[in-house]
Write a protein that binds this DNA or RNA. Structure first.
Length: 496
RNA sequence: GGUCCCUUCGUCUAGUGGUUAGGACACAGGAUUUUCAUUCCUGCAGCAGGGGUUCAAUUCCCCUAGGGACUGCCA
């Protein structure tokens, strides 16, 4: 049975879902699941000027990719719909009307121009900014006359004077505001749409939201919301405000400072379970001496508690995310990673489009690469030599390994390899061992030049696994090329 | 400017009125490995500052400094 815990994530479709929003969604999700409650997705699209067509799709995709699913929402429905605010405008109008009638709200006929002049004046004279409440005491018949003339107007909440508004925040504790510093906030706009404040409060009540877990930026609005609940005669939900996520330089997270959008992380080849885990630990910890850091979604659900959410803003440490992503990469099967990597290889033209991602050779390449990679895109550049023969050799390694003696060694090995019956890595290793032993040459003297010859670089997967994947033909041809290269270099050197 | 919030290693954090202030990432060194990576070990590094309260304060209170949010007919 579901508990009466109901929480919601309520994004505005004004752009991509950034990691801060994703973490708010994540905490809502974890809290709901932990408590056996309901997680709701609600779209707050009351600002028609900032609405972006694709934003909703991107929000859904981001959350789904992360593994955050909702019990009620625009696409899945639910008993409290609609879950899109632009489809609920009548409800907000009705409630605004109710407040007008009960004397908790009033019509304001001030023009945007007047408000702007007012703000400028206040700023110039170093006065506290805010609406001067000119329309608050407009005589009833004057208000009625303007209304009858269809004068554009808005509806404002009548904030009571000389009150102390107190509420408890689950993360920050008791918070108090003097009502005098609170503006008569706008409930309905000229265009007939509600503001966030009205729509949010009406919906949270109508949808029986028990806990409002939202971003820090709302904390200053909360006392106004409390007053709104009071005006309606409703009991406010329990509030918890999540701290912000900052970029490495301590500023706001933005696209310019790396990725900010959840989908950017997806496209860069981060694994959703890694981002999920990482985000959960950003501003939240297990506490109680529990030092686990790598936790599955199920584990996180079973231990999550709002009391352990830190009130402090935290810096998004990309390095730590990478580390954690690497942990999850190594845990994934190579076939599942192939789904993500192979498209990049196809894009490079290294793999024919028709090749299935589950192709055994491709999966073998991933076997060799995944332990050395922190994200999917790392497996693109580092896979180059699996698909194309090196066009140049790492300079430092050339000086070290492509010495004159290497010519004979590589030539011998080339000969032996071309006659090898098995190209399986254990067999190749035995072949190298025998050859080395017969001439009394150290293993490393054989291995390093070979690696450089076939890959062009001095580092990478185990040599014999590498040779096995490349295959006899490629290996021999690359060895020939390298031999010619060394001969040429030696000749040039002796000439000069 | 005003209101509110925040402050433990570079970063994420645990933690307590008495601890050698713990872990993780990063960084440095070492071991293992044919190389790289992994793994393991070691090291580096922190309670913003100043007052109180107290036998004792990183922990409680106040002030200062620094940071942030809000201050829209945006959310």
């Amino acid at each position: 049975m579901r508990s009466s815990i109901r929480v919601r994530f309520a994004p505005s479709p004004t752009g991509y879902l950034h990691v801060g929003g994703a973490r708010t969604a994540l905490f809502n999700y974890l809290f709901a699941k932990r408590m056996g409650g309901t997680f709701i997705l609600r779209i707050e699209d009351t600002d028609r000027s900032r609405y972006q067509e694709d934003a909703c799709k991107e929000i859904y995709e981001s959350l789904q990719w992360l593994g955050i699913t909702w019990d009620e929402g625009p696409d899945v429905g639910g008993a409290y719909g609609s879950y899109v605010q632009s489809e609920r405008v009548d409800l907000y109008r009705k409630h605004a009307q109710q407040l007008l009638e009960s004397g908790h709200a009033y019509r304001c006929f001030c023009t945007p121009q007047r408000l702007e002049e007012l703000r400028n004046y206040q700023e110039k004279n170093k006065l506290d900014p805010g609406y001067d409440k000119q329309c608050r005491n407009l005589p009833a018949q004057e208000s009625a006359r303007l209304l009858a003339e269809n004068t554009p107007h808005i509806i404002r909440l009548k904030i009571p004077q000389d009150r102390v508004v107190a509420f408890n925040d689950l993360i920050r504790g008791a918070i108090e505001y003097k009502s005098a510093v609170l503006d008569d906030l706008v409930l309905m706009k000229t265009d007939g749409f509600p503001t966030y404040h009205l729509a949010n409060v009406v919906d949270d009540h109508a949808m029986e939201i028990s806990h409002v877990l939202r971003g820090d930026e709302w904390i200053a609005s909360t006392p106004r919301h409390v007053l709104l609940y009071e005006a309606f005669g409703w009991t406010p939900p329990i509030f918890a405000h999540m701290p912000v996520i900052l970029s490495a330089d301590g500023g706001k997270l933005s696209k310019r400072k790396g990725a900010a959008s959840v989908l950017d992380y997806k496209n860069q080849g981060y694994l959703p379970e890694a981002l999920f885990n990482f985000l959960a630990l950003l501003g939240w910890s297990l506490g109680d001496g529990d030092e686990r850091e790598k936790l599955s979604q199920e584990e996180l659900i079973s231990v999550f508690s709002l009391g352990q959410v830190s009130p402090k803003a935290s810096v998004f440490d990309e390095k730590k995310l990478e580390w954690m992503n690497g942990l999850y990469m190594r845990e994934r099967t190579s076939i599942s990673l192939a789904e993500l990597v192979v498209p990049f290889w196809k894009q490079k033209g290294w793999v024919p489009n028709a090749t299935p991602v589950s192709d055994t050779t491709l999966v073998k390449v991933i076997d060799l690469l995944k332990e050395r990679s922190k994200k999917i895109v790392d497996m693109v550049e580092s896979a180059t030599y699996f698909f194309i023969a090196p066009v140049q050799y790492e300079e430092k390694a050339v000086r070290k390994y492509f010495v004159p003696d290497a010519i004979k060694i590589l030539a011998d090995l080339c000969e032996l390899l071309s006659k090898a019956e098995s190209f399986e890595h254990a067999a190749l290793e035995a072949l190298y061992k025998n050859y080395g032993d017969s001439l009394g040459i150290a293993f490393g003297v054989l291995i390093h030049p070979t690696r450089l010859a076939v890959s062009g670089v001095s580092f990478g997967p185990g040599l014999f696994e590498l040779l096995e994947v490349l295959g006899k033909e490629q290996v021999c041809s690359r060895l020939q090329t390298a031999i010619a290269f060394i001969q040429n270099a030696v000749a040039t050197r002796t000439e000069s």
